[in-house]
């Protein structure tokens, strides 16, 4: 009883803040618009011209995700090398990192945090203002956000691997890059690749969503069709989207199984 009362007291302000009013769903006007929109869902649009356009948009979505992730990788690899502490020679010698090394690593870590804390959709919104509507904004948004995510997780994976081999190589005079490549990398490679594949899958979903703020691909087409209340087109594009995500999911898990 008291619990229910407490719940009601807690819920009331939430209901007010969210303007929660299920009756709006039942107003004649919105019912009519919804009905018109939904009845248009069947049959889904399937003219050759529309399918061609949808196919092109789908490819654009995949291309945005792939190009964005490639750029993210180009940024993340050097940042990881700077951020990871397993190649710190000073830490190995004296147990403490030199001040300069510590500052650099911390700065890179903050940069990575900043890159991934701003949601990709907000990056996309900003880039649409800078470079205009179209896939370029999507590519740049994915590149920045995923650079932050990949950099952080790569550094963590490298640090959680057994540092013994790397340390031995460093102690015997190997260069840092060589020590990393022959020490930590063989052990961590499968996990690094599998995480990258998983992120590619996320990038495909993300690039569809970013289309809604004008960053190209399937999302942008879907947004246009939604604004015109073209139910049939929305229905086909939703189907295509679900298929695309399922395919990406399949490919990514097949790749990961091969690695695992």
């Amino acid at each position: 009883m008291i619990g229910a009362l407490l719940l009601a007291v807690l819920c009331w302000p939430m209901l007010v803040y969210t303007e929660f009013n299920p009756l709006t769903l039942l107003e004649a006007q919105s019912l009519e618009a919804t009905w018109r929109f939904l009845s248009d869902f069947f049959p889904p649009a399937h003219s050759a011209e529309f399918l061609m356009m949808a196919l092109q948009a789908t490819w654009e979505t995949v291309a945005i995700a792939t190009a964005g992730l490639t750029l993210a990788l180009l940024g993340a690899v050097p940042l990881t090398l700077m951020a990871t502490s397993i190649v710190s020679v000073s830490q190995l010698e004296s147990g403490r990192m030199r001040l300069a090394g510590r500052l650099l690593r911390q700065a890179v870590r903050w940069l990575l945090v900043l890159l991934r804390s701003v949601p990709e959709l907000v990056w996309a919104l900003l880039f649409v203002r800078i470079v205009g509507l179209g896939p370029t904004a999507g590519v740049l948004a994915i590149a920045l956000t995923y650079c932050g995510m990949l950099g952080k997780v790569y550094a963590e994976i490298l640090e959680s691997s057994d540092g013994h081999a790397t340390a031995t190589l460093l102690e015997n005079g190997a260069g840092r890059l060589a020590a990393l490549c022959y020490g930590a990398l063989p052990e961590a490679a499968a996990e690094l690749l599998s995480y990258t594949t998983y992120r590619w899958e996320c990038a495909i979903r993300g690039s569809v969503v970013m289309g809604f703020v004008g960053a190209g691909g399937l999302g942008q087409r879907m947004d246009e069709s939604l604004k015109m209340l073209a139910g049939g087109e929305v229905a086909s594009m939703l189907l295509i989207f679900v298929l695309l995500v399922a395919c990406a999911d399949g490919i990514s898990s097949a790749l990961r199984k091969r690695l695992g």
Binding site: T34, F212, L226
Partner: peptide, 11 residues
């Protein structure tokens, strides 16, 4: 986000 844009029509 896609749900939101669809539900804007009804809500």
């Amino acid at each position: 986000l896609v749900w939101a844009s669809i539900l804007l029509i009804a809500a």
